[in-house]
Design a binder for these strands. Structure first.
Length: 123
DNA sequence: ACGATGACGTTAT
DNA sequence: TATAACGCCATCG
């Protein structure tokens, strides 16, 4: 049997898998930005794709989508979401994240990706 | 195959 | 500092 293309693609796209896997690696009380996750996957400008991947994920998923916010440290959600506008904020607060107004201090809560997960050469 | 969409990011005004 | 428009690329119909 050739398993070259038979029963070898249960997942719609490995790209999403990578995104989900990375998001799951975010520890509680920490947050990451879409651009950050995208950059870790080598998708420097694909922040939108990351958001789109999480969009397809459901509220019952194993993905802590709640820990993913935009570069402004704010919560992004679409009108098509579950309906709870403050749901994500509440979930983060329960993890120990403090909101300054409607914004989070990324300088303090930004998740620091381990070098094992991805390589980042900064200067 | 093409067009429209989208949970963003960045730059310009 | 806030608002607006553009770009970026994968996914969906």
């Amino acid at each position: 049997m050739d398993l070259s293309k038979s029963a070898a693609a249960p997942q719609p796209s490995p790209l999403y898998e990578s995104i989900y896997a990375l998001v799951q690696q975010i520890p509680a009380g920490r947050v990451a930005t879409y651009g950050q996750i995208a950059a870790l996957l080598g998708l420097y400008r694909h922040a939108r794709v990351v958001g789109y991947a999480l969009f397809r994920v459901g509220p019952e998923s194993d993905i802590p989508w709640q820990r993913v916010v935009n570069a402004q440290g704010k919560i992004s959600q679409s009108p098509l979401r579950y309906g709870s506008d403050d749901l994500q904020r509440v979930l983060l607060e329960q993890e120990g994240v403090v909101f300054q107004g409607d914004q989070i201090d990324l300088n303090q809560y930004r998740w620091q990706p381990p070098p094992s997960t991805a390589q980042f050469c900064e200067e």
